[in-house]
Design a protein around this nucleic acid. Sequence first.
DNA 1: TCGTCAAGTCAGCATCCGCTTACATACCGA
DNA 2: TCGGTATGTAAGCGGATGCTGACTTGACGA
Lengths: 204, 204
Amino acid sequence: MTDADDEIVRSGRDAEATKRALVRAARRRFATEGYRATTVRQIAADVGVNVALINRYFVSKDGLFEACMLRTSDELATRSTVPATTPAEVIERLIAHALNAPNGDDPLQLLLLLRSSGDENADRIRRRTLEHFTRKLAGASGWSPDDPTTEPVLLKAQLAIATMLGVVMLRTSAAVEPVASATAEELAGPLREVLRVLLDDRRP
Amino acid sequence: MTDADDEIVRSGRDAEATKRALVRAARRRFATEGYRATTVRQIAADVGVNVALINRYFVSKDGLFEACMLRTSDELATRSTVPATTPAEVIERLIAHALNAPNGDDPLQLLLLLRSSGDENADRIRRRTLEHFTRKLAGASGWSPDDPTTEPVLLKAQLAIATMLGVVMLRTSAAVEPVASATAEELAGPLREVLRVLLDDRRP
DNA sequence: TCGTCAAGTCAGCATCCGCTTACATACCGA
DNA sequence: TCGGTATGTAAGCGGATGCTGACTTGACGA
């Protein structure tokens, strides 16, 4: 929670560390409370700096949201799908990503993808990120981008994403029982079954 | 879209019709844009009446949200699960409810369940509605509320709800392709498979 | 030691939001 | 016909929000 960046920001004058801390605090707020409900004063207070720095570094609240989206887009693309080669591996990685500890940032990144900002530019990035993520996931299930006849695979991959988004939403934002307080082990079993149906054609 | 209630409101003085029109407009706004992003001035403008009527009829913005939740709670409980007796029937009803025409109110009702209001009372109603809906769904899958050993059934029912919520979210609020413009027929197949895994123990 | 510039703060402006109060208008029974 | 009540409107208040411009503080090289 209070890690290196926070210390650096508190102790002194490191613009890059301050920017990183602002992005992380913003992502937490945006993901859990939504764009409009989050105020720039809250974010600045979370980091412990003055509000005006947000406008200095990110021009506007929209700019900060866009920075969050861009970073989430990068991390999702690189960390979640690229190293995986088989459908089974993708499934395990997806489950791990979504069921991380509530304090971890991974589920929040997924959740952020659902939050519209009202800003046209940021929303386009969000949509593109989700569609890119869909193709990555479908690709790992043996789908080739050049083959239009296998479009159902794309659709099923997106249904898998929808499932994970729904689970993350119910667990973090809505806090609905029993799924909110279920352990990762309890959820991994059924989720694995569902994802196998959607992502693994060669399932048993 | 412009149906009886709107006409009545525009043409005259019918308090009940005005209340219904306000609730319907509010539900549309709350579901698609979230609680904070929706303003009472917008809702009043949608119906074509003065803003003060919202406070007169529903006391506050929170009160209007609560009215939306209560009506959604009722309709979900009665229309979606009660008439169904077998898991297969429940599954078909759930799919039909979520994949209705985008102008229909049914998907919006589901979506509304995800939107936290920031108000403690309205959020409690929302959480209770979701948990009640979970038990209804689990009950239709052969789960008995008195049997604590079958708790995984409850969890799996909630995962089914999470899946449907995710799909509705991506289709309406996020508008992500290809799931946003997919037809109900294209989606029903994979969704039926997923829901069978989660809700039907006696699946083939 | 001092000048320079980046990093951060402070106070305030314009706007919007939810809500309230006072007022106007249409219905309806006596 | 007329007065009372229900329905709807107009205007504005207090507060919060995003953002801005002027100011202060600290680091660092000559």
